[in-house]
Amino acid sequence: MPREPPVLDYQLLKNHAGILLVGDYHSLAELHEVVHDVNDRSPLLRQDDGPFLGLAYDVRKAYEQQREILLPPEGFEEIGVRYGVEILWPVLLVQHRMLRVSLGYLDHSKRHQAITYALEAVIEDALREDFGTQGQAIIDRWLRLDPDIDVFEKLDSRGAMFCSWSKTQRNKRFASLLSSFGLMFGIESVQQTAESVSSRELQRWEGVEWPDPNW
């Protein structure tokens, strides 16, 4: 039986925290399978059970009906039951970039591409809706993020800082937070603004338990 193309969707969480990633059973199961395959073969990943694999764990919990269950609206039963899981913005964006860039190092199929691009489209739409005029700047910085072998170590302090921010701070500073993953971060010649994330700030969040993101 031919596979249906992946169908993913989203709902925004509160306070610019992230999204509820939504899909039917087959689309989420496909994403789970592809993430596991990339995790096993990508030269950019050095942990067998690290944060990248957390994406597979989250979507598995969703389609196993252990997270959000979304029933079809009354009168639209043909939509079918869908499943969702909450994911913070910095976590999802780094996970997706690792997925996307890793494919460039691996033999892969159109199935890999289909689910990867479906997730990318959902993220772009959600960022534009969530951040309004800041949305495109955030998308541009996210798509320039080149994941290296230390990217998830960097995520530890950046995720903690993001969770501590208010809704207003996330709107103003998230683009700068994404830039802080780059190789040029911390170089004095790079122009800084009042909203820029500094290396001194990030040092204070290293090894700190992530606060409640209020999502």
Rank of each mutant, 00 (worst) to 15 (best):
A17M: 02
V81S: 03
T193V: 07
R67Q: 15
A194L: 11
H26Q: 10
V38F: 11
F52A: 04
V59H: 09
S27C: 09
V122R: 03
L28C: 06
F52N: 06
Q134T: 10
L155F: 07
L202Y: 08
G132R: 11
D49W: 08
S164K: 07
R41D: 08
L103F: 07
G104R: 13
D150S: 13
L106E: 04
V85P: 11
E77H: 13
L103I: 12
Q66W: 02
L202F: 05
T133G: 02
L155E: 10
E68P: 00
F52I: 04
E78S: 13
R200P: 00
Y117M: 00
I123G: 00
P5Q: 10
G84I: 06
E124M: 01
D140H: 07
S196V: 05
A194C: 01
H16S: 06
G50T: 08
N39D: 09
W142F: 13
D212H: 09
L31E: 01
D156W: 11
E68K: 11
R170C: 03
N214S: 05
E4D: 12
E77C: 02
D146V: 12
K110W: 03
I79F: 08
V34R: 04
D58H: 10
A62M: 08
P147A: 12
I19V: 13
I69P: 03
L177V: 10
L20I: 03
S198P: 01
I149Q: 14
K14V: 01
E33A: 15
D49M: 06
E64P: 02
L8R: 06
R100K: 10
W205S: 04
S27M: 09
E30A: 15
D107W: 03
S199M: 10
E74W: 01
R67L: 05
V151W: 02
R46T: 13
S189Y: 11
E86S: 12
G182C: 04
T133Q: 12
S198D: 06
